[in-house]
Design a protein around this nucleic acid. Structure first.
Lengths: 363, 363
DNA sequence: GGACTGGTTGGGAGCGCTCCCAACGACTGA
DNA sequence: TCAGTCGTTGGGAGCGCTCCCAACCAGTCC
């Protein structure tokens, strides 16, 4: 590996002073931001009237309204958030909290979808979404400060693992929050929205059994998550007496763990004829392992994944998998959160969403 | 495709009233949050002293400091952000602004890295990172309201495309900001941090030429981005008189566009013996196209990518590619932003970072 | 011993909004 | 004509902090 360094140090070029080329109401350097009072003076009305216009314009005559809006435009005024939040007690923003030790979630295509739906749904209530992250213990504490300091009206928590300290702390602070997935150990006192993990797994495995499969193994998600546990429980219930510890291998959602788990399973149970994998990503690796071991899919081993990801469509063979209603889940989360924020509900809400099995060629 | 609906409607279960199972200083429902005044009363000191403790504890005797901290603990007090922001004029947070029409960026592994480094660097200055997004025109306007309302002390903009309206608006508001990549049309008046696109491309292409390659083509990024343009300029400069329009095909960073561009190039210039691709993802597709066309890499066609992504390592053959100093870029961005926020600098800063060519087997 | 010093402490004066109540018209109905 | 009503408007009273100045309290030095 050679390296052709093209430049030794960052070059710092200094341009001409700012503000020269931007058009519109330029906020001249040291000049202060216009306040609601400035707008009122220019429009020839009172502070109260300007405030009313800024908040929807009810009880304001059209003429006044137009004059105020004009003044707002002229001055390039925008409300001071801090003052509004202090006076009103509401911030107009909601945090999406992601506490992850690895960068798993960001590479998860579902993540982008969640952000998109959350943003869209929250805007209907005039709320902004702020994505916040913590990668280690100290950042978690720092984020905890942020969330409990009243920066946001509520929080949406992503996929908590068992015993997450941040979730505990924020819950204790009384901030309205909704968790994506069942929070182990807090099922009762927190609000959450989750797919019916147990039933999904039960259906998937029963589907394999109905096809005459008798030795159905499973590659699980981490068993300190409610997803991993719930899916394993469903698998176990479906198998009944046929359940055997040797047919279960734990993964951690990663591709590599799927690979290792599939190998382990195949060596422990060479007569495997069905496989239920807790994620498509791990299932894809299992397909590779099976192929390398000379097993045909689905003839020798039928495989069912979970997620209905894009990759499932493109797999060889295309993967039969459990579809999760992610959009629905995001929408419900925002709905519940807003009920908690507005005070329409004061007791924890639990929403369980149905999934569906998408049948393709692998099973 | 059959669908086995497992549950018709979301089940909404209602748990017992909140607060029953959480430990610690519970903020009882309607009871108000404790204020700095409550802390002062409990600790037997003045409001001013509590404030001093909360802000680093300078000019406070150790005894007082301990007493105040104890009171804070007892009451479960945390500062009211809005009040602090209003009084101090600083918010302690910075936005990472992502205005993307598609979900490209979220699936970009670099994105997670940026978030991580930004978070880490900002925390050193006591600043929180808020990731904010907009997916369409209305969300962009809504996000503009947010950014100009003083929610944040500054903003980091991701990869702007030409003429992005949000960037214009925020720049006009006077909010300190730093752009990742050169903002076309605003190079002078805005601060930015970017790799030396032109020099990187120049070096990469010269590397191919030095190996005796004579017909070197290029697959570009979108030419309405500074990356696409800068890299094309470097390519062109390296080629000199050998430059020909027929050796250039424009892509849009997507895998599919790489595939199409490679095919086009191969049909227009069957004697192609070198290829410089503006991203690894597109380069990977080019490898496939070359293989299908019976060309050996690097014997018949030498290929150089851009990004030094993980995929480049795993390609067949492993990809020679340009490594971008992403971490460095993120660190510099935060440094510049803080200088702008603190007022240490008032003129726009431009930081150009060196890249390096990582030589593997494809060239 | 008295003036001076420097580290601490208290508390007044806002920061820029929203909320709310009183005041003000223009209308209505008796 | 006058009281009553309703939509609109003005402005006082905070919201919970930080900032800053004055006051205080040892020590210290002449």
């Amino acid at each position: 590996m050679i390296t052709g360094t093209m430049q030794e140090k960052p070059r710092t070029a200094v341009g001409r002073p700012g503000g020269t080329a931007v058009a519109g109401p330029v906020r001249s350097g040291p000049g202060k931001r216009p306040t609601i009072e400035d707008v009122a003076a220019l429009a020839g009305v009172s502070r109260g009237t300007v405030s009313r216009v800024l908040n929807g314009g009810v009880h304001v005559r059209p003429g006044m309204l137009a004059r105020v809006n004009e003044a707002v435009e002229t001055l390039g005024f925008s409300v001071n958030h801090a003052a509004r939040a202090l006076a009103s007690g509401r911030t107009g923003s909601v945090a999406f909290v992601i506490s992850e030790r690895d960068e798993h979630l960001f590479s998860d295509p579902n993540f982008g979808l969640f952000v998109r739906i959350f943003t869209r749904e929250l805007r209907k209530h005039g709320q902004h979404l702020l994505v916040t992250t913590a990668h280690d213990y100290e950042e978690e504490a720092f984020l905890g400060d942020y969330l409990t300091a009243g920066h946001v009206d509520g929080a949406l928590f992503a996929l908590p693992y068992e015993g997450e300290a941040l979730l505990d702390r924020v819950a204790r602070s009384g901030l309205p929050l909704v968790v994506q997935g069942r929070p182990i150990g807090h099922e009762e006192e927190l609000s959450w929205v989750a797919p019916d993990e147990e039933a999904s797994a039960f259906e998937a495995v029963r589907y394999l059994l109905r096809q005459g499969r008798r030795r159905v193994g499973t590659i699980t998600g981490p068993l300190n998550t409610s997803s991993g546990r719930g899916r394993l429980a469903g698998y176990r219930r479906a198998l009944g007496d046929a359940y055997s510890r040797s047919l279960v291998a734990e993964g951690d959602w990663s591709a590599r763990s799927g690979l290792l788990a599939a190998r382990k399973l195949l060596s422990r149970a060479p007569d495997l004829d069905g496989l239920f994998v807790h994620s498509d990503l791990m299932a894809l690796q299992a397909l590779t392992v099976l192929r390398e071991a000379g097993r045909r899919v689905p003839e020798d081993v039928a495989v069912v994944g979970f997620d209905d990801s894009v990759a499932a469509t493109m797999a060889d063979p295309p993967l039969t998998t459990v579809h999760q209603p992610l959009e629905r889940s995001a929408v419900e989360s925002v709905r519940v959160l807003n009920e908690l924020i507005s005070g329409a509900t004061s007791v924890p809400q639990h929403v369980v969403l149905a999934t569906r099995l998408v049948r393709r060629r692998s099973a």
